[in-house]
Amino acid sequence: MLEIVRFAVVAALLIASVVLESFAIFGVNRFRFALNRLHAAAIGDTLSISCVILAAIVYTGFELLSLKYFLIVTLMWMTSPVSGHLISLLVVKTDEDIEKEAKEWKN
């Protein structure tokens, strides 16, 4: 019984991560402005990867290996937003039409 539940949870998490990652890919290719694309990529960077790692944690059970998986998630959640923040700063500083783009996005 427990095995079936575990399998179901792992499968659900993996499917969720695949769906989220496909959202991210779709957004990266579909959005027109760099900041929007950055937002779409951040979904894949944080939520989707954490779903995969969570699936791995559930699959291995709670032991030392799952602690290491958890460390991976922590590192990703610490570093990915910071790198996104830096890239967005760069976009704001170097993009010449940033105000026009912001206005267009708002409307």
Partner: peptide
């Protein structure tokens, strides 16, 4: 120098 980056 970025505050977020340096504190991370």
């Amino acid at each position: 120098k970025d505050l977020i980056l340096s504190s991370l």
